[in-house]
Design a protein around this nucleic acid. Structure first.
Length: 615
RNA sequence: GCGCUCUUAGCUCAGUCGGAUAGAGCAACAGCCUUCUAAGCUGUGGGUCGAAGGUUCGAAUCCUUCAGGGCGCGCCA
């Protein structure tokens, strides 16, 4: 085998730089961007000469022509052509595919990985559930995003700490506890056969119902016609009611006793939270969520107070007449924000300040990422600004990975009103649909009962995960449970199907040599446009992983994988593998198939999606 | 009212540093299973990139204004 180029893009960029040096006697130090020409006939790569035009004070068309006239071929570079302001480069397909396939098959599980983040540790905080109700579609988005970003960062070399910050205290937790005290009759998840988080969530709903009934009765006593009120009047009445509500008072009393350490209340709290964790863990396991460390608000809710007092003594914060402590962020286009109440107790952001500091004490982090919905954009601006004022230089390395709201056809999800898509229901529903689809195909593709279960789970979950992750994080999702997720077209199962077809080819080959197949082959047979398009797509994967990781955007990967699977499906249709014209062509197409399978599996893995051996 | 954000085909979404003719999927219509899985492939129709200005050789992309949607503006979390 002739000596070959290790890194195709480095080879191209080095040569392009050399040509620029030769023709214009100028060293071009900026990044050279390799694009793809709009029409494959123009070449495999394109370089726009616009950045050069500025430096050289010549038209990009001229530059492209001069470079093309001077450019020299190599083993890899077959043809260079100027088309308008673009320098189009056509590679020798035998070399291109040979180098690439060797690389992919040798790398295998690590294809696409890089070392951008080596030596750096980053924390990704995600999920952040409340322990009074089950996980819903909003958590699903959060968790899929958190896991995908964690995996992407690992792929580019970061050491990643996945953290869960559990909201396990507060009046909302006490509400479900109170309802359980009053209606529970000693029932347990075990005695009722209900998953623990749903069991507790049921009592939270019972509380809300009871308080709502009390409210309606109260309105009658007040002689108020609710429907005729203006919004601000409604707010006034609601506030007034909360002061008089027996139910709310009882919940607050439980909270007070919890904070005092009342043994009976603590025991109940621990028992009910334990039920919830058991339920959450089932959901986490099914979704593929993992955590390296857990933070609990019950441990942290008083933290941050000392930091505020220290900041006060240093003149960073100020005290108002009533004794409350504030920070003035108006110089940063933000407002004044309260940090400690007049009675000296913490507010939400006080605790977040303490927790942020704690994370950096616990781990030598270089980055700290918060996966939290866009409704808290302002909160995090304020939080990071305060940390910076306190003098923490790492405040600049804190990043709010904000994601858009999830809307149902009837509007925003409201858990208090039961207007949610439950995470467990969603997954079970999609798995059922996948099972139905598999059964419909049972005649052509017989399937055993056990395999039916595992494959429908892989496919159903794949459909959800792909769909949710295919949106850019910042964008809102309008989700229709009945219509949004399908198994056809631009979907998770489409990618899984491409993978399953490859595995099927290997099973049908003389001996299933998927594992043992080496990249040794005669690549001179590669010439079909669909083969070449597939090779081009495979080449793009590492760059896509890099961009997705740097921008915390898994939807780059969904888009890429769909294009890869589409290129493969077209190849599959046009280019017989086992029935190719000759054995050498079969061999090299097998290599292409394996390279595709490796890449698909690796890409799906980054998204937390499994690749089924058959479907 | 103030701040942030979004608006691309009937629907759901891509579109990298401003660059070649704005792309997919779904839905609709027309084809393809005696060849490796038809959850697939091929083809057709479908666009004033919310509107108007501006910057630029060049704007879906940057700036301004406007319209419409969303989120936030608690001694809540």
């Amino acid at each position: 085998m002739p000596p070959h180029v290790n890194d195709i893009s480095t080879h191209l960029k080095t040569h392009i730089r050399q040509w620029i040096q030769d023709v214009f006697s100028t060293e071009f130090t900026d990044e050279i961007k390799l694009d793809r020409p709009p029409n494959p006939k123009l070449g495999d790569f394109a370089v726009g000469c616009f950045p050069l035009a500025k430096v050289l004070r010549q038209s990009p068309v001229n530059i492209a022509q001069k470079l093309a006239a001077h450019a020299t071929k190599t083993n890899l570079i077959e043809h260079i052509q100027a088309t308008g302001p673009y320098l189009n480069i056509t590679l020798n397909k035998e070399e291109f595919s040979r180098i690439l396939c060797h690389h992919i098959l040798n790398e295998s599980e690590t294809f696409g990985n890089s070392s951008l983040g080596s030596g750096q540790m980053v924390m990704v905080e995600y999920s952040a559930p409340n322990t009074n109700k089950p996980l819903h579609l909003g958590h699903v988005r959060n968790q899929l995003l958190g896991m995908a970003v964690a995996r992407l960062l690992e792929a580019v070399g970061y050491r990643v700490i996945k953290a869960n910050l559990v909201n396990d205290r507060g009046v909302h937790i006490c509400k479900s506890m109170l309802a359980y005290q009053r209606f529970g009759n000693g029932e347990t998840p075990k005695s009722t056969g209900i998953k623990g988080d749903h069991f507790v969530g049921h009592y939270y709903v019972r509380y809300e119902q009871a308080q709502k009934a009390e409210f309606e009765q109260w309105l009658v006593q007040q002689h108020v016609e609710w429907d005729t009120l203006e919004p601000h009047q409604k707010e006034q009445y609601e506030a007034q009611f909360l002061k008089e509500s027996q139910w709310y008072a009882a919940a607050l009393d439980l909270l007070r006793r919890w904070e005092e350490g009342d043994a009976e209340v603590i025991a109940l709290w621990q028992k009910m939270n334990q039920w919830v964790y058991e339920g959450f863990n089932q959901t986490y396991q099914k979704m593929g969520c993992e955590f390296d460390t857990w933070y609990y608000e019950s441990d942290l809710y008083k933290s941050g107070k000392e930091l505020i007092l220290k900041g006060l003594s240093e003149g960073i914060f100020f005290k108002k007449e009533d004794g409350s402590i504030w920070v003035d962020l108006t110089d940063q286009n933000l407002d004044e924000k309260i940090l400690l109440r007049s009675d000296g107790t913490s507010v939400y952001i006080t605790q977040d300040i303490g927790t942020a500091v704690q994370k950096f004490k616990d781990y030598p982090l270089t980055k700290s990422i918060y996966v939290v919905g866009s409704e808290q954009n302002y909160h995090f601006q304020v939080l990071f600004a305060i940390l910076k004022k306190l003098g923490y230089t790492w405040a600049d390395e804190c990043y709010h990975l904000s994601y858009g709201m999830v809307y149902l056809p009837e509007g925003k999800m409201k858990s208090r009103e039961g207007k949610v898509v439950d995470a467990d229901d969603l997954m079970a529903g999609m798995i059922d649909l996948a099972k139905i689809s598999l059964k419909e195909r049972e005649e052509e593709r017989p399937i055993q009962a056990e395999e039916l279960e595992t494959i429908s789970e892989i496919v159903g979950l794949g459909a959800i995960k792909y769909h949710i992750l295919s949106f850019q994080p910042a964008k809102d999702i309008h989700f229709d449970p009945n219509k949004s997720i399908s198994f056809q077209g631009d979907t998770g199962p489409y990618l899984q199907y491409a993978y399953a077809r490859i595995r099927s080819i290997f099973r049908k080959s003389e001996q299933d040599n998927y594992v043992s197949l080496t990249p040794e082959a005669d690549y001179s047979g590669i010439h079909h446009p669909k083969e070449i398009e597939l090779v081009r797509k495979l080449f793009d994967f590492p760059e896509e992983v890099r961009i997705a990781a740097e921008t915390y955007n898994p939807s780059r990967i969904t888009t890429y994988l769909f294009e890869l699977a589409k290129a493969y499906s077209q190849f599959y249709h046009a280019c017989p593998v086992l029935n190719a014209e000759n054995d050498a062509l079969t061999q090299v197409r097998m290599v292409l198939c394996k390279a595709t399978a490796v890449t698909l599996k690796r890409g799906l893995k980054l998204l937390g999606i499994d690749a089924p051996e058959r479907m």
